[in-house]
Design a protein around this nucleic acid. Structure first.
Lengths: 214, 214
DNA sequence: AAGTGTTTGAAATGTACGTTTGAATCTAAC
DNA sequence: GTTAGATTCAAACGTACATTTCAAACACTT
């Protein structure tokens, strides 16, 4: 019993680290099991397959994050007052940082995994996401629309995807960016620093005025 | 002679399509050579290795794009007048769209490859880029700094990388996004449409006012 | 302490990959 | 028409991978 929990946990911990660092397909089960110090066959025993291991790794974070976000979105929607866009975006900060409770660098790891999931395997994550958390995402889109009544829905669609790209890419190359910032600007930036830098950037981009061609 | 040219070209054409669609490491030489209708060994014969093939695919576009960009940056820097940020960013549009002269969907393919290169193989592309085109990039950063004199250099660094993420991610999922936009909003968007939508978003994000914590 | 179901271990299976090889074929000059 | 070099071809090589297998070790109930 305790040993089963232990093995599963060790596999999840090693897998998420390696997945985040090098991507899903580039990480082999042999790397994972040797880092976790468990037998190679235990992945297939406990999770069935590599694909299911990937889902389990993501689910550990999503099952904690998404209900929290849903709750916040619902609260804001119910408040019946105009919400500034940057406040809507700021809703993400605390739930994201709470992922550090799951593991040491949980927030960073999760966001990197998110990035990997969107670029590694074509479209799978997007489908999975919409299928499982579509309702929550709809609430978020609604909040953004209320914050930017001047923007047509299609423009918001594009800009939210632009924003997703910023987040996903930034987190995928997070370590490299932090190193460069440290070397070039003597800046020590942690994950919450990056998130706080992102908010004004994203808010300004999403709410940008529509230009009449050029 | 003509057959050699032909084989190399066929390999490059097939490789860039598959690389853009599924990524570098996920694309096998066997897929490439069977799509190109050439022998498996011809990749190693003509290019040496898979790694060198990847470089050749990227170089075909970069060697055309980067000198054009450098020329534009130099021109703007020499003009000695204040350049609006969105004008600086617009400099990319024409050279990028000219990549369509190399091949049918050249612009889209190149931007997808760029995205793959940044997420697929850890850091390699970034190094390659800085090493070969560092001077050109420096000119661009300088132009952005001149356009946004209120922003500290470190903030510009972060925001330019945020922007790179937007571009790279958008292009990597370009096909999916176009499909969704067509289905949900009856919008037919081509690559130049996406680029033109990107400019105001990026310009607003990069130039966003700095908020004094929150 | 025996027995039962769960978990681990070492080894093997089959597949796919990048690359190499050496003979066969083509190309072009003499 | 022969020859020399460039290109193509089918086959094989060695490696790494996910997954399977089945016996050994373990945990827990009785």
């Amino acid at each position: 019993m305790t040993s089963k929990q232990n093995t599963q946990q060790k596999i999840l911990d090693a897998a998420e680290r390696l997945f985040a660092e090098t991507g899903f397909s580039a990480t082999s089960l042999r790397q994972i099991t040797s880092m976790a110090e468990v037998n190679l066959a235990s992945v297939n025993y406990h999770f069935g397959s590599k694909k299911e291991l990937i889902q389990a790794v993501l689910q550990r974070y999503l099952s904690l994050l998404m209900p929290r976000l849903d709750q916040e979105f619902t609260r804001l929607l119910a408040s019946q007052q105009h919400n500034e866009l940057s406040n809507v975006l700021s809703v993400f900060v605390i739930p994201l940082l709470e992922l550090n409770k799951i593991q040491n660098r949980g927030t960073t790891l999760f966001l990197q995994l998110l990035g990997r999931g969107y670029t590694d395997v074509q479209g799978h994550l997007r489908w999975f996401f919409n299928h499982h958390y579509g309702r929550t995402l709809d609430k978020f889109v609604l909040l953004v629309q209320q914050s930017c009544p001047a923007l047509p829905a299609s423009e918001i669609f594009w800009r939210l995807h632009f924003s997703l790209g910023t987040i996903v890419f930034t987190m995928a190359s997070n370590e490299a960016l932090k190193d460069i910032a440290a070397a070039d600007f003597n800046e020590i930036v942690e994950i919450d620093g990056v998130i706080k830098r992102l908010i004004p950037y994203l808010a300004a981009g999403i709410a940008a005025p529509i230009t009449t061609t050029n």
